[in-house]
Design a protein around this nucleic acid. Structure first.
Lengths: 172, 172
DNA sequence: TTGCTCCTCACGTCACGTGAGGTGGC
DNA sequence: TTGCTCCTCACGTCACGTGAGGTGGC
């Protein structure tokens, strides 16, 4: 038997997540203690394992509930419909990425180059951006349009030498 | 001067979207008619144009509001932070895609091949999936793992000839 | 009169997060 | 007694969508 926080910790979920699953009937604990504490059994644990797995893949809770109610249908419909949804989202994100790159390019050619170096670092600090994410953005930019990327870096005030150094780091 | 539905139609937004923007103070109409109808002026229209543009790129309304309040900061911070966010989302989606493909593969090797042809078409019908999306999924699958894709198609009950025909269609 | 537009609540969505106020267990 | 865990409301998040119930304009 597990208390709510114990079983939550096993799957790295929050207590409120479990409370929510109980409230919508997705995972009702096996029973309650004398004082009303939720008690989860081994079967609950196995059920939660499946829930956490599909949740991690981005499957909506309602579909997970449907599958758990009729497991004989198998996981393929779940997985395929999630694949289709992911595809749509990726397409939308790619379109946005492209439009953003075009706007950055247009911006770069409109204004004269100003020392905007602080923009990126200020932004990074504000958003708590790690070195890793920062490089990932440059990598994306480079992949989408190497030329636009170089222009953008120059626009931010990087010197040619600095740009070459950054690009070398990206290759690793 | 535009009434709410007229200006909404110009930017292909819904009336409730405009009501919401008013309620949060992002776009307050210039004035009201005697009977209380919202009236939007040309300046409102230009403001909404910017809002709709950044919204289309996925920028949160709060950040859009911040930019409109201090346009001298320029659009670069907005665009860059959105780029970073997109990057993170794409990574997460790719991870999910990979995990799903692995699960589909595992599923395929576990069970004996059953005539599951109806799964895809039933799924497509349920989700209102168009022919285009359907092909996009196969394209993604093919790109990620051509071999897994072929196994999966065989698993669904496609014959070798049918698989070859589908793959030819994907190349177009 | 009809059909369309407008108004203001107020609640629903999705998957939780975050207190508030109070109790139980070791 | 202290620190941790548990409980039940109830409200907040994000960007709207969807009625309900009523009025105005052509």
């Amino acid at each position: 038997m597990y208390t709510i926080s114990r079983i939550a910790r096993i799957f790295r979920l929050s207590r409120s997540t479990l409370l929510y699953y109980d409230s919508i009937g997705l995972l009702r604990p096996y029973g309650r203690s004398e004082k009303g504490y939720r008690l989860y059994c081994e079967e609950d644990r196995r059920r939660l394992e499946k829930i956490a797995l599909f949740r991690g893949l981005g499957v909506p809770l309602e579909k997970i509930g449907g599958y758990l109610a009729r497991p004989e249908e198998g996981t393929i419909p779940l997985l395929m419909s999630r694949m289709i949804a992911i595809n749509g989202q990726m397409e939308a994100l790619k379109d946005q990425q492209k439009a953003i790159l075009e706007m950055i390019e247009a911006e770069g050619s409109l204004r004269n180059r100003k020392p905007l170096l602080h923009t990126l670092s200020a932004l990074a600090a504000k958003a708590g951006i790690t070195e890793k994410n920062y490089l990932a953005v440059h990598r994306t930019f480079e992949k989408a349009s190497s030329e636009a990327h170089r222009r953008f870096l120059a626009y931010l005030g990087f010197t040619d030498a600095e740009i070459r150094a950054l690009l070398r780091r990206l290759e690793k």
